[in-house]
């Protein structure tokens, strides 16, 4: 699905990612944890095509194609989805309009015709129920005036409708209350399938109780300093990151 090799990324002269290696196979769930400022969002952004970063070395291959060479919208149409840590407010563009535009772009990309208006509404309303949202959100401007938690839930709604192949969730759990975390996690779990992979950036073990990862990686100072199974997250919860950083420093 995704193969990242020795990826180095800078902003201006400042190196942020310093040699990331990551292999993600279809159906796998990878959790990425790590201290603030370690480069987790940068990795999410670089995978989804945000401008302003320079790749100085390395590669990212998605389904056999050079991911870094594709414009962001092509990545999205090919199935890469980023649930933003800070979803952007788009006044004047309704949620339902954007969903329709997005879904039709994907269909067009795959040589399919536009979605039928009725089918579309049935699909969208079904997902709205899945995430226990109010239908009114569909007709509001994208994220405008949404609470922090509502924004996160809206990201997962979009993901549920667009059915991407590679789902990158950047701190989707931050800002969600306990009930919302459960609902959103169930939404994510319902999307799990053998041909869909997830990269979940999180600071909290709590999320991983609901969505059980296959692998946990620790990103620190722009490098993956440790990888392991779900038990690594528990260890981090207990000990924090300093023992890893100390190990890194002495290595």
């Amino acid at each position: 699905m995704l193969s990242i090799k020795n990826l180095h990324v800078s902003v201006g002269d400042k190196p942020i990612l310093k040699g990331i290696n990551l292999e993600i196979k279809p159906g796998e769930i990878h959790a990425i944890m790590g201290p603030n400022g370690s480069g987790k969002s940068t990795l999410s952004h670089i995978l989804s095509g945000k401008s302003g970063y320079t790749v100085t070395e390395g590669s990212a291959t998605y389904q056999g194609k050079d991911l870094l060479d594709m414009p962001p919208e092509i990545r999205a149409r090919e199935g890469v989805f980023l649930a933003f840590q800070y979803p952007v407010e788009i006044p004047g563009v309704s949620n339902v309009y954007l969903l329709k535009a997005a879904l039709n772009s994907i269909r067009k990309h795959h040589g399919q015709s536009e979605v039928d208006a009725m089918d579309f509404l049935t699909l969208v309303k079904g997902k709205v129920r899945l995430l226990e949202m109010d239908e009114k959100f569909l007709y509001r401007a994208v994220n405008e005036g949404f609470s922090g938690g509502e924004k996160k839930r809206n990201e997962i709604l979009q993901m549920a409708i667009l059915e991407p192949k590679l789902c990158i969730l950047d701190e989707t759990d931050s800002g969600l209350d306990i009930d919302a975390l459960k609902i959103v996690s169930e939404g994510v779990n319902s999307l799990r399938s053998p041909d869909r992979s997830f990269v979940m950036v999180t600071h909290y073990q709590r999320l991983l109780d609901y969505i059980k990862p296959d692998f946990v990686h620790v990103l620190a100072h722009g490098q993956i300093v440790k990888s392991g199974g779900p038990e690594l997250a528990l260890e981090l919860e207990e000990k924090g990151y300093s023992w890893l950083e100390d190990a890194e420093a002495s290595a």
Binding site: S48, E73, A102, S105, H109
Partner: peptide, 11 residues
Amino acid sequence: SIFYLQSRCVD
């Protein structure tokens, strides 16, 4: 905002 829309498949 442009990037957000692009990430949602919009050219």
